[in-house]
Design a protein around this nucleic acid. Structure first.
Lengths: 250, 250
DNA sequence: CGAATGCTTGATATGGTTCAAATCCCGTGG
DNA sequence: CCACGGGATTTGAACCATATCAAGCATTCG
């Protein structure tokens, strides 16, 4: 096993988890060259309006995908957790106004768009797997839009953590009602995701803490009562359902 | 030319406009059976949580894609205009919580998911074209999320009509600053898209009218000053850029 | 140990909501 | 052709969730 094969585990793993891939296809993915990069502290990785020809795979930490208004105000459209593939839509449409911002420390793989396009051209199953990834990202954004509209600040905050708990694979298989996962973003970042002021985010977190729903401290989220927080958030994990494996059949 | 070929023009046209398709591929699309359906007046077409095995192509009128909370509150995540393909993501992931609602009178084609899957399996270029459609829909949702967060009610309303003007193909090629397009939805519907009360939507429309920016009356939107409304909306059409044609090259 | 960054709290302001009600508009049936 | 009815639009007034402004406190890190 060479360095690349090892380094690429994340993307192959992600695709294989959600789509059925043959050994040949899996190997083809492992052959794609990549380079690991790290950022310490929150920092912009991509600016919107910048034509980029790379795709990123998050290895550790959190990255926010954002859009930016002329006045500098940001909306983070989705928080990415490790294993997520970012910028894949560019295979279809280059020049999208997408920005990426590390939320805390992060490390990620950089792959070339050209390589991935070649891969998609050659292996239809991989192309499908990519497509499925894009749909999944899109669902997350749609659900956030929904949450921002119809939930008040308290439920909205709860909703985000419900989503992250599942996407970070933090739910214990045992029906335990309490568990933890790491979360390195600041309250400022949270406010960019939730469409709230940092001040108000702080108050909502306090309330969640005081009501023994969940705590966020030391970059660690602890859910005290999984049933309760889901009820508060009006949360229905359907939209996160790991996609089904076969594209050809029902 | 048989009935089906005629009926399917919309979908073939849309795909061909954004992706390069061979004659064979185009013909294959035209062969897919479809059925035309109409609804008079606003009405739900699909309920979320309903597992549907169809894809819809809007022929005339407007259809809103929505999510619904348990308390009945709706967020319309995007308004579809004629030519749009709805529910295509289901090729990849069935069982998505998507609802569709006619906004006013509408007519649309119904195609079977199975047929389209077969098509995608057989013709990689068509599969790519589908994928591109999904990315494009997803961009529209992301931009709406952004608008709801960072624009106030007035700009937000303007923003929606900027988007619709372009998507409805209403912008005159001549650099004229004023033009019209039809828009059959009610202010109630608008409030579901904009994340505002119907009352407030009404006020924003009044303000736009009084300031000679645009008018909405008799199911017709008239933009009086295209430059101005774009400035008010902070609108940058980049995200609607008809996608580029070749997936294989930069 | 000092500086920076993030967190927390209080006081005040406001954009948009909510509730209530009048008016307009258009299709329908007499 | 007119009267009727019901949805859609418009307006007013009071209220509230969240923003804004201001300031002090806690951590972390160089």
């Amino acid at each position: 096993m060479n360095a690349h094969e090892h380094a690429l585990h994340p993307i192959a793993q992600r695709l294989a988890a959600r789509s059925r891939l043959s050994t040949e296809e899996r190997d083809a993915i492992l052959m794609v060259p990549s380079r690991l990069e790290r950022v310490a502290k929150s920092r912009d990785i991509w600016r919107p309006q910048l034509s980029e020809s790379n795709v990123l795979v998050l290895v550790s930490g959190l990255i926010g995908a954002f859009r930016q208004a002329r006045n500098g105000a940001r909306q983070i459209t989705s928080i990415h957790v490790s294993g997520d593939i970012m910028g894949l839509e560019r295979i279809m449409t280059s020049h999208l106004p997408l920005g990426l911002q590390a939320l805390g420390d992060a490390s990620f793989l950089i792959l070339s768009l050209t390589d991935l396009r070649r891969l998609a051209d050659r292996y239809p199953a991989i192309s499908m797997a990519f497509w499925r990834e894009c749909v999944s990202t899109s669902e997350i954004i749609a659900e956030r839009l929904f949450a921002i509209r119809s939930l008040d600040a308290y439920s909205r905050t709860a909703h985000l953590f419900c989503e992250l708990a599942i996407r970070s694979d933090a739910i214990p298989s045992k029906g335990s009602n309490s568990f933890s996962f790491s979360f390195g973003a600041t309250q400022q970042h949270l406010s960019d995701v939730l469409a709230l002021t940092p001040i108000h985010v702080n108050r909502m977190l306090r309330e969640l803490r005081e009501r023994s729903v969940m705590t966020l401290q030391n970059r660690l989220v602890t859910i005290h009562n999984w049933d309760l927080i889901q009820r508060i958030a009006n949360f229905d994990p359907a939209y996160l359902q790991p996609s089904y494996n076969n594209a050809g059949a029902d």
